[in-house]
Design a protein around this nucleic acid. Structure first.
Lengths: 226, 226
DNA sequence: TGTTGTATTATTGTATACAATCACAGTTCG
DNA sequence: CGAACTGTGATTGTATACAATAATACAACA
């Protein structure tokens, strides 16, 4: 992949606050906490070996995101992503990933296109191998590369968040041979549409791609994942 | 309007941090700061009569939102909403408000529908009066009522933020007789489609409504507003 | 028994103290 | 003259201290 050393670091992972934020966020999104779990500043601080200050800052950020609900003078409580949320997110993603692909067709650079193709080739390799863990990473990477290529700060922000929020769901869908093969094929089709500068086709294909993912989830049953 | 006492208070306006957050956010969105203005914790704290602690927490929230850019150990800098951002937001809003109207048609309650109609009637009254300041508030209220009615935490969150981000632009468009009359008419059409349970029509009309707003802006010229 | 008042304790909210880092000016040395 | 070095001041990052608030338990009382 052409050089790019962590340029995408929009979030600060090096400060204590950054690490605390990532840690709690990951714990919520991965389902380690239950809904309404009370997050006590002192306890979390002790667990992570920091004082309350960075913990508070992290909790306030998570509140803004909606992953945590803060009641003044009382405490912070976990707000899980619900099944309804996931369904809504997939409907929104369907539209927005379509728009993203359309814009990417317009704005993508030669380098970004090459990077995308490289990711795709690797995906195809690991699809054949059935290496789901790696495949999941590459799936994430493919989508994130598209988000960047669309050249829209606003759209990128939303889609990146959504992508995180349904991480568990995506992990589950990828981990089946049927869906993973289809998914990679769809990625290639999207890539080719973008490469051929066919924005309409790219948009339709990207929309379909997300729609089919949620369909494969609904067959499996969302409850089992969340 | 049927009783509802500030239930929508998802953000904490009463703590110092809440007030600091609102204050800085308003200053950024209203254009009181220039792009890249350095926001020094001590200075802001002094200005608002609080210590650095609540200021820091507010800045971290604004960072997550993308309204502020924090460089570790260096400082916080204002990230204005650019003209490109506004255009992107309107494209996204066009789609999302459409979806919102569709969902609202499905989920809206009798009370919410009555509230919406009341807002609409007031809007029509103040349109005739040419009372733009009040009209702007009612326009905001109408849209926010739709966001609630759609019954989607996720969609509500995004659209509410967008709504804030383009506040200045909306203020400018409302303040012309031509557009304000049209806009209120479009609101009524959307309302009637929802009332008649015609989701498709509601979606199309809501999409159009946003699209026409941005068109009227482009005639006027975005640069003059931002 | 049930309710109200109150002391106690735990937790959050804010201010402050101190450490770490950075920007910049002045200095030294090639 | 310019580049590397260094000390000083300013600013952020984190920890801690203290204040304010809320939850709890328990006693007093009707």
């Amino acid at each position: 992949m052409s050089e790019k050393q962590g340029q995408k670091e929009t979030r600060d992972k090096y400060s204590l606050r950054g690490r605390v934020y990532e840690s709690i966020r990951e714990d919520i999104l991965s389902g380690r906490y239950e809904q309404n779990t009370e997050l006590k500043e002192a306890a979390i601080g002790a667990e992570l070996g920091v004082s309350r200050t960075p913990v508070r800052e992290a909790l306030r950020q998570l509140e803004l995101e909606g992953l945590v609900r803060i009641i003044p003078n009382r405490g912070a409580y976990v707000n899980m992503i619900t099944a309804k949320d996931v369904q809504d997110i997939y409907v929104l993603r369907s539209v927005l990933e379509g728009l993203c692909a359309k814009w990417a067709t317009e704005y993508i650079t030669k380098e970004q296109l090459d990077d995308l193709e490289e990711t795709l080739c690797l995906s195809e390799y690991h699809t054949r191998k059935g290496n789901y863990e790696k495949l999941w990473e590459l799936d994430s990477q493919f989508h994130e590369q598209l988000y960047s290529a669309a050249n829209s700060r606003i759209l990128n922000h939303i889609l990146s968040d959504f992508h995180d929020y349904v991480k568990r769901v995506r992990k589950a869908t990828i981990a089946s041979e049927g869906r993973s093969v289809k998914s990679t094929e769809e990625h290639r089709a999207i890539f080719e549409a973008i490469r051929d500068k066919d924005a309409i086709r790219a948009e339709v294909l990207a929309k379909q791609h997300v729609k089919r993912t949620i369909e494969s989830i609904q067959i499996y049953g969302l409850d089992k994942i969340l």
